[in-house]
Design a protein around this nucleic acid. Sequence first.
DNA 1: TCTGAAAAAATGTCGGG
DNA 2: CCCGACATTTTTTCAGA
Lengths: 154, 154
Amino acid sequence: MIDDISLQILSILQEKARIPNVEVARQVGLAPSAVLERIRKLEKQGIIDGYEVRLNPEKLHRDLVAFLQITLDRPEACTSVAEALSALPDTQEVHYITGNDAFLVKLRSSSVTELHRTVQKHIAGLPGIARVHTHIALATHKESAKIPLDAIIP
Amino acid sequence: MIDDISLQILSILQEKARIPNVEVARQVGLAPSAVLERIRKLEKQGIIDGYEVRLNPEKLHRDLVAFLQITLDRPEACTSVAEALSALPDTQEVHYITGNDAFLVKLRSSSVTELHRTVQKHIAGLPGIARVHTHIALATHKESAKIPLDAIIP
DNA sequence: TCTGAAAAAATGTCGGG
DNA sequence: CCCGACATTTTTTCAGA
């Protein structure tokens, strides 16, 4: 399915996506053209989904992380609520969670004032929503989308 | 602090970080060298923190998302627990949350079996931990680290 | 799938405004 | 802070193994 060299390439890119191709080639011991061919293939297969810049939230006034636990009145509202939540610019994650059948939503705002405004104006009133529990992050010790690759069997 | 053109550049990079510099220059109406200068400056300022490849978790057998709510016995254990949680490869996020004074941890695993193993072997036994509540995501509707830039006042 | 060489394109440098 | 020309480096293509 995916061999060891491609895993190595993914691992290198996951650390530093803007590393030049020639450098990746050197590290895995192939010619640049071979590496390019592999990367193109990984992109076409959808294993590589894209490339993102990592911005510093603090320096851009987006240092308030909050989690909302949203329970529903009516199960039918699930889809529409999910779409409405996902459409908000402050929303970073929307998951439907086992247990109490609720959404867990991660928001990034500029302040508690703005968070409150977003919840009141765009979330609390959505049809189908019963309760919104808001939890604010006092500290964020880790925040990453990295996927561990060493566990994958080639 | 940061002007409109730099915000435009960040916005373009946030959509597609691997876009060539000349293309960014064309879109913002500057010479490539001017754009390069701005990007270097943003990197040095720490506003741009790095570049990441976005991998598809499903295609890499990492499609199980779980959230742990971890309450502590002893408040002094906070730091050591945070470090231990952050060190686990499956851990993607570790937040300390208001309300019940607990950690909210996001994990990405390959299966419920592996999730269970990780919790039992590396988390439940950590000194200072009182309870671990595990919630599994049945569906993930949005998952992004994008920061909305249009709200920022230049 | 890989290589190596050549062509095409982008990045990086720098004097000057 | 920007431009534009030039040097350097990288990406991309391609024929052959």
